[in-house]
Design a protein around this nucleic acid. Structure first.
Length: 827
RNA sequence: GCAGACGUGGUGGAACUGGUAGACACGCCAGACUUAGGAUCUGGUGGCGUGAGCUGUGAGAGUUCGAGUCUCUCCGUCUGCACCA
């Protein structure tokens, strides 16, 4: 017998004497007692058990920052903890793991400031997070805890990168990347918010650098199409689709010529357009200032100085400056023309910064009559505007709606769809173009000029180029470096790692140098849910058996801010592993939900600088973990933002104490009446359904209603109270565990069975029916459930109120909605 | 500008396929009780009206026996994307 459970007493009887004297709920001793017992008995440890149905609940693992847990974290963790606990009580084999996304910039910045090695501070932070998470009583299987900065973990992240490289999906390229001059680091498109660094807010500039890239664009179509079968909340789906930005159109070649129409050999200007059918309305062409032809043709221009000046001016601008100002600027490339392949007309060519180098081909055909941007530009530079779609007035602005084609040769009279088809067909036959799909999504910039990340397991050999290190040498561990500063040239601190850098080429055995960039912290989090399935495996990242049993994740909850970052990356990464045959499912997550943020009581974001941060430790200390958990579930609709309110928290605190106090009224001899059972079954039904629907706030109000009902009673039948304890257990496990033990149960409450409801008892036997006169409420009648229509009608018409008000009026019609309403329509 | 979500008491928010608007909680008011505790308990609480009653879900119209819910127009808030050809 576990003496801990009886507060050190020898028997249940002796312990009973102790708590019978207690009046108030002492959450401090009770919560820590059960946390210790759960820990010792490994109550949440889970193994593969094929006799049971599995359920994999997942929350985004935190970055272990020095600030500790934020009140936002437990909103997500408690929600899925409630779901995991309920599923466990319903007999599922539940995997609910936790770990740490431990590589990242703050640890490195801290190291720069203090000299403390990131590994040291990260370890301390993980210990603090673990303590905090345990103090909240989450049912994580701590034996499966992982950390992305652990070499045993990042060995596999590196291994997966090598697989990407081998399949040609990881490549080194010199491109203009987003460069944060403050962090001195390259950023992925997804990390740039409004032209600024997501992390520090500095304006991002373009910088040409050799970078490791990962070809996520190869998966663009599948990342869109496979969303169809997934149970993701709509805004996640639409944001991902929007971000990938698929658009169908055509690529067309426009030959470049000199002023007299003599074709310049090999210089065809390729453009992408979604409307090839408007080609007869093209009156000029525009290239991005970065376009390679600008450099290549410079000697031909009659105004090279002007062109060069514009190119330089554009290069100096940040992306933000470039997009903030939408007035059109540009320079004509004098001395060259483009030839419209549809009508062989010669048209001028410009450079302008409204054409982006990163999208399509970096050049456009301009149709000012039907595109507002082209229209603005044409007006400013006095270029002709030719209408080719009927229906609009183009004297003031572009006509961007649909209309039959005009001034368009063989396309005249066609609608949009046919016109596009015909134009592409013509281009294809004539050999100057074809249909083409374009994406806003860019390949993933995978290099970071940083210390605290996974080393990229590649070496450069003069003879053999980039080579992956042999897989037997993994993990390639992070070397020690004299200091953690990146330099202004954008070289990683690893470039100072001395002897570590020098190695031999795995192919030719000659001299080779290691890559010094590290991976972005989205790398480790792209596959962590796979490692949870088999976290201690040193032969594979996870065994086939474990992956086949546990995958996919059944329910994944996390922040909206990760929709186009982590969530997209990890779906891609997973699909890649699937294609290689390493994972059994083509998608990692079956269901994805998202919680709303928790704001300070005045509606502002909680932040250190505003000084309005609520520390979970303080709340646990003052009110207990159960109150904290329950409050976060009661605070409002789970998917919406919520404001922290200590006063509302008090209400929940009272409720928790009330449940404790109710125990005194529980009587073994008391029998539950039918009315009691109806209240109970109704509560079971509502709580069960509402948890599944993620309506935690109303699930809690059902429990409150039931508790209010019970507290009106003199004595409470044991059955009624036990059911309450089981229903409440996922929300407030410590309290429930204690009360469950006091009810005399030897097994843990967290392993108890989830109550079932009886549909007949969950509904009322007597219903209150509203009586309306011409749609206005006049009174109510009590009727047995499913009473006959005539009886209901009769009862309604005999209501005092109705009699009085219908006197002398003709009753035209009586509408009876069973068990709901009677509407009497009178003249 | 584009896309999406939303708008309900003093406050957070309930209301399943159109069917008693305001569940549950906070706050407030009145009372009880007390070895004073973050007390607790009882009753009340959308607005107007002594009352029967009237009125009420951002504004206006419409469909319907009946609209918070459906349709249209407008106003407002939030989120995401933003010169994507």
């Amino acid at each position: 017998m576990n003496k801990d459970r009886y507060n050190g007493k020898e028997s249940f009887e002796e312990w009973k004497k102790e708590w019978q004297l207690e009046d108030r709920y002492n959450f401090r001793t009770i919560e820590s007692k059960w946390q210790k017992i759960w820990d010792e008995e490994k109550a949440y440890k889970v193994e593969i058990d094929k006799s049971k149905e599995k359920f994999y609940a997942l929350v985004e693992f935190p970055y272990p920052s020095g600030a500790g847990l934020h009140v936002g974290h437990p909103r997500s963790y408690t929600a899925l903890d409630v779901i995991a606990r309920k599923k466990r009580m319903q007999g599922f084999n539940v995997l609910y793991p936790m770990g740490f996304d431990a590589f990242g910039l703050p640890a490195e910045n801290y190291a720069i400031k203090t000299g403390v090695h990131p590994a040291v501070s990260t370890k301390a932070n993980i210990a603090n997070f673990t303590r905090q998470l345990k103090s909240l009583g989450f049912s994580f299987d701590w034996d499966r805890c992982i950390s992305t900065c652990d070499p045993e973990y990042y060995k596999w992240t590196q291994w997966m990168f090598i697989q990407l490289f081998k399949k040609g999906l990881a490549y080194k390229d010199k491109i203009a990347i987003n460069w944060c001059p403050s962090c001195k680091v390259g950023l992925a498109n997804e990390e740039v918010v409004n032209g600024c660094c997501e992390r520090c807010g500095a304006q991002v500039v373009r910088k040409n650098k050799e970078q490791w890239m990962v070809a996520i664009t190869k998966y663009a179509d599948r990342l869109i199409d496979d969303l169809d079968d997934l149970d993701f909340i709509e805004r996640v789906k639409s944001q991902q689709i929007n971000w990938i930005g698929r658009s169908e159109g055509a690529e067309l070649d426009f030959e470049l010529t000199d002023n007299d129409g003599k074709v310049l050999d090999g210089k065809k200007l390729k453009v992408f357009t979604t409307r090839p059918d408007t080609a007869f309305g093209v009156t000029y062409m525009v290239m991005a200032p970065e376009h390679q032809y600008v450099k290549e043709l410079m000697s031909r221009f009659e105004n090279p100085d002007e062109v060069q000046a514009y190119v330089e001016e554009t290069a100096k601008k940040s992306d933000l400056q470039r997009t903030a100002d939408d007035s059109k600027t540009g320079v004509e490339l004098k001395g060259i023309k483009a030839k419209n392949p549809f009508n062989n007309e010669l048209i001028p060519v410009f450079i302008s910064d409204y054409v982006l180098t990163g999208y399509g081909t970096g050049a456009i055909m301009a149709v000012p009559a039907h595109d507002q941007r082209d229209y603005d530009f044409a007006r400013k530079f006095n270029l002709p505007i030719i209408q080719v779609l009927e229906g609009g007035d183009i004297s003031e602005k572009a006509w961007e709606e649909d209309g039959a084609h005009m001034n368009s040769g063989f396309l005249n009279g066609m609608n949009k769809e046919d016109g596009i088809k015909a134009a592409i067909e013509y281009a294809r036959k004539s050999g100057f173009g074809n249909s083409k799909v374009n994406y806003k999504l860019r390949d993933w910039v995978f290099s970071r000029q940083r210390y605290w990340g996974e080393p990229i397991p590649m070496v450069y050999c003069e003879h053999c180029g980039w080579q992956p290190i042999p897989e037997s040498e993994l993990p390639l561990t992070l070397p020690e470096v004299p200091d953690y500063h990146p330099n202004d040239e954008g070289e990683s601190p690893l470039s100072k790692a001395g002897a570590w850098l020098e190695t031999t080429c795995p192919k030719c055995g000659g001299k080779a140098r290691r890559e010094t960039d590290t991976m972005p912290n989205w790398a480790g989090s792209s596959w962590y849910f796979l490692r949870y399935c088999d976290p201690h495996n040193d032969k594979e990242f996870a065994s086939k058996e474990a992956l086949e049993y546990w995958m996919p994740v059944d329910w994944y909850n996390g922040g909206m801010e990760h929709t186009t970052l982590h969530l997209l990356y990890s779906r891609f990464w997973h699909k890649f592993l699937y294609d290689c045959g390493y994972v059994p499912t083509k998608e990692p997550y079956r269901r994805r939900t998202s919680h709303g943020m928790i704001l300070a009581s005045n509606g502002e974001k909680m932040s250190k600088s505003r000084g309005n941060v609520i520390n979970p430790d303080d709340i646990v200390d003052s009110y207990g973990a159960d109150t904290f958990r329950l409050y976060e579930m009661f605070i409002g609709p789970f998917d919406q933002v919520a404001m922290w309110s200590e006063e509302s928290l008090m209400g929940v605190y009272r409720f928790v104490n009330k449940v404790y106090g109710l125990f005194k009224k529980v009587s073994e001899t008391e029998k539950a009446l039918e009315k009691d059972l109806r209240a109970m079954h109704k509560c079971i039904k509502e709580v069960t359904e509402r948890i599944d629907q993620m309506k935690f706030n109303t699930a809690v109000s059902s429990l409150m209603t039931y508790v209010n009902y019970l507290s009106d009673k003199e004595k409470i039948a044991a059955e009624l109270y036990e059911t309450l304890i089981r229903l409440l257990c996922p929300f407030t496990p410590h309290l429930c565990e204690e009360m469950w033990a006091r009810m005399g149960h030897e097994e843990l409450a967290v392993t108890a069975l989830w109550p079932q409801f009886d549909q007949n008892l969950a509904e009322d036997s007597v219903v209150t029916i509203a009586v309306q006169l011409c749609g206005k409420m006049r009174g109510t009648i009590e009727m047995p459930k499913d009473a006959a229509r005539e009886d209901v009608e009769k009862a309604a018409l005999s209501l005092e109120n109705i009699k009085r008000q219908t006197e002398g009026r003709e009753i035209k019609k009586v509408i009876v909605v069973p068990n709901k309403i009677v509407n009497i329509v009178a003249a």
